[in-house]
Amino acid sequence: MLHTFVALVENKPGVLTRVASLFRRLNINITSLTVGESERSGVSRMTIVAEAAVDRAHRIMASLYKLENVLEVDDVGRHSAVVRELAIVKVAAGPKTRAHLFELAKVFHARIVDLAPESLMLEITGGASKIEGLVQVLVESDYQILEMARTGRMAMRRGQHTSRVLDALREVPATSESTLAGKPKHTALGKVSTEGHA
């Protein structure tokens, strides 16, 4: 199945390699990986989409946490989440064929971001299926796609499951359920981040 993880990592040289290398070591192909700034300074946010057996999510998360630069991991694929991708597509089009592309753009909620004598550029955001739908229509309508760039997926859980909320949960005193001597904090956090995997 396709797994989607969000990882908050320290923004330092080599961290991307460490994360990517982990998947290589586990013999898992990364479908897409996006990195950018997060709401915290010095912390980058990665969305990693990878194809792996259903029962491997636990080990992937546990292994990610073993990397010293990884601060938080969330298996967002298991939760209701907004997943978006951006694509820009350059299509060969002269004055006679532009009009039809304008219509297509409107249907797909895409924008024309560049117009040249022999081509135009479409910008589209959405789920993967929406982007693939546009590409399919372009190909079936005999348009020539000159170039295409896709960002890969970005994901965020719906509701209040932000890293800031996780931080707040960490401050909550441990419940009587978590009684490991001397380490109630970790046990409490463990319960939050292993939710749904036990």
């Binding site: 998360m61 546990a62 946490y65 073993k66 938080e72 009587s176 359920e177 978590s178 009684t179 490991l180 380490k183 970790h186 046990t187 956090l189 463990g190 319960k191 981040s193 292993t194």
Partner: peptide
């Protein structure tokens, strides 16, 4: 930072 997935709660015990 201990591994965040450590878990040995009372019910598992």
């Amino acid at each position: 930072r201990p591994h965040p997935m450590l878990r040995a709660d009372a019910s598992s015990i």
